[in-house]
Design a protein around this nucleic acid. Structure first.
Lengths: 139, 139
DNA sequence: TTAATTGCAAATCCTTTGCAGATTC
DNA sequence: GAATCTGCAAAGGATTTGCAATTAA
């Protein structure tokens, strides 16, 4: 009764899939299926939106890309092993600062080891009030 | 041209809002608007779904609750200051381990300070492959 | 009384699915 | 030729919005 793995034994390197892989490689950070679809369209590659969704999902299942959700509620994808960074976002004005924290990287890794998990990736998001917004009278 | 703060100056403590606050307090972890709506309904409180959405959104804007997205893509809320923990999830079987990491808490805080942010909350999610799934031949 | 709040239903937006035709092996 | 993939359009599900009625201050 345990359905753990459902991937088809073959994954065909079609034009569409290669294009999507390229788009992921071109993007620096997480991108939504819609963004990738647009990006492909602008690049002259014609790929159906449904195909983009299906492919990204398959890649995520296979562990080839990391998944997260952006504030807009979209599911976003990023190829693994991209130079890794996080964001510190102001909850009032949306100002964003990029963070590179080797400290968390190590922490994530050691937690994984501790529980017998391998191949651990992580997602971190810091949300706070930036100095400017904190200074506003309304706050 | 800078619309930074749009909150109405008054936030009325209506029956609905109090009920939603209670529901948040009752829940141990992140809950979606729909879950809270159900929970209220079962508790005998009649509150419109739209109201739940609007209220949670307002609370999030005000910084009274933390927001995250669950794997299903739903937006979920948790009152701030709940005993804080994170999750380590197996990307294959979904097995979940709760993590309490004071290390990250401190890290998040110091990063905030470093950039002049106050009132910094954070969201962390670790995704990996658990020992059991890693042992499966298919993987 | 006025401004904020609510409920309902309609409207949006993102994502998934059914299915026939195209494609890869 | 068989198993996969694609695209399109329809279907689903979550969230938002318009608007008239209701309620708190």
């Amino acid at each position: 009764m345990s359905e753990i793995d459902e991937r088809p034994s073959t994954l065909r390197p079609t034009r569409q899939r290669l294009a999507i892989t390229d788009a992921l490689r071109a993007g620096v950070d997480f991108q939504s299926a819609q963004e990738i679809h647009d990006s492909l369209r602008h690049a002259g590659e014609k790929v159906g939106l449904a195909t983009v969704y299906r492919t990204l999902q398959a890649m995520a299942d296979a562990g080839d890309v990391d998944v997260r959700h952006n504030p807009a509620g979209e599911t976003t994808y990023r190829r693994c092993s991209t130079s890794h960074h996080h964001h510190l976002v102001c909850r009032s004005c949306g100002r964003t600062v990029e963070i590179t924290g080797s400290a968390v990287e190590k922490w994530a890794h050691s937690i994984g080891d501790e529980h017998g998990f391998i191949d651990v990736s992580h997602t971190v998001e810091l949300v706070g009030l930036c100095a400017e917004c904190a200074a506003l009278p309304a706050n």
